[in-house]
Design a protein around this nucleic acid. Sequence first.
DNA 1: CCGAAGGAGTTATACGTAAAACTTCCCTGT
DNA 2: ACAGGGAAGTTTTACGTATAACTCCTTCGG
Lengths: 356, 356
Amino acid sequence: MASARQHTGQAADPSTPARPTGRDVARHAGVSQATVSLVLGGKWQGRVSSRTAETVRAAAEDLRYRPNLAARHLRLGRTRTALLVVPALSNDFFSRVHAGAARVAREHDLGLVLYPSPEGIAPAPDPFESTPATLDGVIASSMAPEALAALHGDLPLVMLDSDPAGTRAAATVNPDIADGMRRVAEHLLALGHRRIAHVSASVGSWTFHHRARALAQALAGTSASLVCTERSALTVAGGLRAATRALATDPRPSALVCDDDLLAAGACKAARRHGYRIPQDVSVTGFDDLDLATALEPELTTVRLPAEEVGATGMRALIGVLEGRQPDTALLPVALARRGSTGPAAGQRSPGAETG
Amino acid sequence: MASARQHTGQAADPSTPARPTGRDVARHAGVSQATVSLVLGGKWQGRVSSRTAETVRAAAEDLRYRPNLAARHLRLGRTRTALLVVPALSNDFFSRVHAGAARVAREHDLGLVLYPSPEGIAPAPDPFESTPATLDGVIASSMAPEALAALHGDLPLVMLDSDPAGTRAAATVNPDIADGMRRVAEHLLALGHRRIAHVSASVGSWTFHHRARALAQALAGTSASLVCTERSALTVAGGLRAATRALATDPRPSALVCDDDLLAAGACKAARRHGYRIPQDVSVTGFDDLDLATALEPELTTVRLPAEEVGATGMRALIGVLEGRQPDTALLPVALARRGSTGPAAGQRSPGAETG
DNA sequence: CCGAAGGAGTTATACGTAAAACTTCCCTGT
DNA sequence: ACAGGGAAGTTTTACGTATAACTCCTTCGG
């Protein structure tokens, strides 16, 4: 077929130019590999003359040298890399957590690998199997207890938005969920709401148990009552189903407190399908202040969690652990974003509520 | 302060039990390290007796042995790991792309690291600096040309949702955007819309240029006209601003075609602030079919992109490149999701449109 | 004028793994 | 009886880096 002339790539094969190693740089600069390592590692003060150092840097630049990270990791035994495990990517709470953690990691010249648990909130197969690098530490956010148990290994662990007790975590960083629920309750009480329904998520994550408890506590001893709690999947469709059930209770609640903005979006749809206006007939509150909260109409009254700060604080805590310090649990302040989805309870005049 | 009795951890320090190596397993099983490597690497057929193999596996299990990935990577020169670069995490298009790519990666026993470009759509600092492992390949989604240029290096590259021409990518995988826009245009034409405004994103990503061109082409030669194109940031707030401008044109457009569901959500808010009902007074279409599309009310008519399939196909293409095959460009079919945000044009009876 | 002290490097080594090359033993066919 | 060959291992080596340990040279104090 091919002419005898054409003998395709059997010798001298330069298909991959074999990326340069430190030894290549050394040869090119006329020094030893050790010197290259010293210079490029920045530890050459008093070991190498600045003239030589400059030569080495030029050679490295020239050859486009990139250190082989595998070799470095093997040598050092550490990777300066942490893993951030999140239960879902589509939820922008987690992308904000990641942004915060990534910022701090960059500031400290650490690597950060994001590991989205493939099965939603369910346990990940095994982050340590599927992660390419050996890791120095792990940050896990909003993990269900069973997923947490699967996090074997002896790596330093920082938990975010998780149960501060009963884990092997070196530190825990939480937004002040209880305070958030308290603010929601106070807000609704001030608007005159007395019959409140709770739309919750059926996932096993600790944070939702915590939210439910916090709401019950916030309403305890007030003139308002929790008429029902409906659970469903943590989706808009789930919120729609749960809120439909909640609105069927008689007499119907005047406010739906949702554990998450996704659920709240579903609750809004449910209310409208029942023919109720928001907030005139039914008030709806969310939680987390996702992007979704201000995309809806009316915009959701919700609890803004300091997601970036949670991620950043978690990363700082992990760095502390790695450096041998003994960090402790952090509780970060939250805020109530009052928006259009809540208003005075229908047929009631609340004492201090606006009347216009 | 502390009693003399208490001398905290200074000798015999067993704080880190020094995780076991292959040599430890070998000692424990009474074989050589090479045998351990053969057995655990699965290549012991005809090299090691099955009895010995079982012993080795038991020893590994016993010591909870995990291979040191850094050492393996150094030895093999490959990491069996790819990088997926996405411009934003909060957009669930990308989380779906990732899900698809991750599924295929898992099936092929490859690692996949997700690299969210920190500065939104802007160029990443350098994925290769901040990524812990040396990589075998890169998949990049929806990158702006300038960001693409920054992707130096000679790694095999697969581009998703990007310009098939003028890149050094070994393969490109795109949803059929042009067909999507054509379907949107046909849908609106069938509903009787003749004055159409375009709400576009001001980001440099190729996909938005492509969408704009596709819309213009789809409307060319029809009875409808494109009354204006308004650009803004790729956010709900941006869509609100752009759509507000678009609705101010006189006579006003009866339909707003948005390049993204985020923009469409903003457009819906803009329409309502003008006092227009959706879809009775103004129809709105989105693009991408994000989760947001069905969280809104009315639900958005939008183009559903096969995001998981884009990610999966991209990953398969990369695997093909890594295995030396020569893959080519793929164009994946899209669908129009007809929902509540579009309806017959006001004051017009369209030939085939429903009249109820 | 000699030993000590640095300065400026180099040489050598270890990290843990995969696999090529080697060894040993036993069986088998002629 | 003996070459041949496979089974069942072992020994050895290389991957690229960081750094401890070493060498050689110059300078300087006493």
